[in-house]
């Protein structure tokens, strides 16, 4: 199997789906001649033409709103928000409109739209190029929210998202774009939305995570295995709908849980996961559930030293594991 990185996986998924289905089109800032600021659509304009690879004016609200209108008519737009930090002008259309169309029309109209966006920090992006806004969207019934961590997952889930009949918000961690490589089969495949995956089996403790943090958690699991701690690493992959079954079965098996994410802690994904554990696996717990997450400041600062304070890292995760195991 060829080894590719995450951005190439994203590119392949879009390319294959646009080749297959003339109703799929791409719209966003700089997606045309420039091929996207991260080159996710390199060469698309030449292949698919300006009607299906649309360089949008700098106006995120209408990138979303126009895409919704086209999707209401049955087209399958992929709308790229250049950075997740700039999705806010479009939130009215994504959360206010797209999420509610199917319910609000009593099932008559649906919005087969994918909003793709690079997110996350650790790239010297400062307050406005590092944000992790996934929880805002994941709070919204009617949306599906996906945060893949590997090339294999990114490609298989993006292809599923494009064929899905609902609005899907698809967050791609910028740090994984070129840093994370992995094998991807040459033949076509799809991954199910709403299903997590055990990325490493373990017996002593479950770490539940997603996005870039998956790779930190896998590193921790490997380090601690040599010390006799056998960690299970669960990659959520989809945040809405959450794979509750997988979370609960993993924690029932290990009796201990830590949730790790880069987004800030309070009222976030970790809070939801720990509530699910409390509701459905309380009797199986041997220790309190811990959350390792971004600190309660508005966003990630710019300087390397300040960024380091913000980002969860392997040391912090190891510390949490030690604390949980010692309980």
């Amino acid at each position: 199997m060829p080894e590719i990185n995450v951005i190439e996986a994203v590119r392949q998924a879009m390319y294959e789906e646009m080749t297959r289905d003339p109703e799929v089109f791409l719209i966003g800032e700089d997606v045309g001649k420039r091929g996207g600021v991260f080159l996710a659509s390199e060469g698309f304009l030449e292949t698919f033409g300006p009607d299906r690879v649309i360089d949008a004016p700098l106006a995120e609200d209408s990138i979303a709103g126009v895409s919704i209108g086209a999707a209401m008519r049955g087209m399958r737009p992929i709308a790229e928000m250049q950075f997740a930090d700039f999705v806010w002008p479009a939130v009215n259309q994504i959360i206010g409109e797209a999420a509610r169309v199917h319910y609000g029309t009593n099932g008559q109209v649906n919005v087969p739209l994918v909003i793709r966006s690079p997110y996350g920090g650790g790239v010297r992006g400062g307050l406005y190029h590092s944000q992790s806004p996934e929880a805002y969207f994941a709070h919204t019934p009617g949306l599906k929210v996906i945060c893949p961590a590997t090339p294999y997952d990114a490609k298989g889930l993006l292809k599923s998202a494009i064929r899905d009949n609902d609005p899907v918000v698809f967050f791609e961690h910028k740090r994984t774009y070129r840093a994370v490589k992995g094998e991807v089969p040459e033949e076509e495949y799809f991954l199910p939305i709403g299903k997590g995956e055990i990325k490493k089996n373990g017996a002593h403790l479950s770490i539940i995570t997603y996005g870039l943090m998956l790779h930190y958690c896998l590193e921790v699991a490997e380090i601690l295995l040599s010390e006799g701690i056998d960690i299970e690493v669960l990659d959520l992959r989809t945040l809405r709908p959450l794979d509750q079954e997988l979370i609960v079965s993993s924690v029932k098996k290990t009796g201990r849980a830590i949730i790790v994410h880069e987004d800030t802690k309070a009222l976030g994904v970790g809070a939801e996961v720990s509530a699910i554990i409390a509701e459905q696996a309380f009797d199986f717990l041997d220790a309190p559930v811990l959350r390792i997450a971004g600190p309660e400041v508005p966003a990630m600062p710019f300087a390397t030293s300040l960024e380091d304070i913000f980002m969860p890292n392997t040391e912090r995760i190891i510390q949490a594991v030690t604390q949980t195991m010692a309980y």
Partner: peptide, 22 residues
């Protein structure tokens, strides 16, 4: 779709875009 004033306007434009692409 919506009570949020003006949100239908980009939807109509998206509908027109669909017509143009098709």
């Amino acid at each position: 779709q919506s009570n949020v004033v003006a949100t239908q306007v980009p939807h109509a434009v998206g509908s027109a875009l669909a017509s143009k692409i098709r």
